[in-house]
């Protein structure tokens, strides 16, 4: 079975999904991310889906639950790089990914995570 690698960059975790996701691979990623956040104390998770040609309700649900799990573990998640055709289809399908923060690309996503962390340190 494919396992999606999780990279650590400072206080953030990076995931790039480059395979056509099987359902079980998506569930495994969810568990792997949860344990990596716990183990590393990461404060942010960036998920790059620019290579994904579709996001169906199963993958949408996975993105939403990763965001939820990460939030409970005190980390912010941002999903980046959704292709326009995927975004159009997703909304028509009826999914708007509530609770999932998104950014256009990796750079914007990193900035978003850094800002979220900086704001917290200010307080």
């Amino acid at each position: 079975m494919d396992r999606i690698p999780i990279l650590q960059l400072g206080r953030f975790l990076l995931v790039t999904i480059q395979v056509d996701l099987q359902d079980q691979t998506a569930l495994t990623l969810q568990e792997d991310l949860a344990s990596r956040i716990e183990r590393t104390g990461a404060r942010g998770v960036l998920i790059d889906i620019s290579a994904l040609e579709i996001v169906d309700s199963f993958i949408g649900r996975m993105l939403a639950s990763i965001s939820g799990i990460a939030r409970v573990l005190d980390a912010t998640t941002v999903v980046v790089g959704m292709q326009p055709a995927v975004a159009i289809t997703l909304v028509e399908l009826g999914l708007s990914l509530p609770g999932v923060r998104t950014a256009l690309n990796m750079e914007h996503g990193m900035k978003l995570l850094e800002n979220a962390l900086a704001e917290e340190l200010d307080q």
Binding site: E53, I54, V55, D56, P84, A85, V86, T89, L90
Partner: peptide
């Protein structure tokens, strides 16, 4: 876009 819609529905 039409490809993506059809593939998503099929999924």
């Amino acid at each position: 876009v039409d490809q993506t819609k059809m593939v998503t529905a099929a999924s």
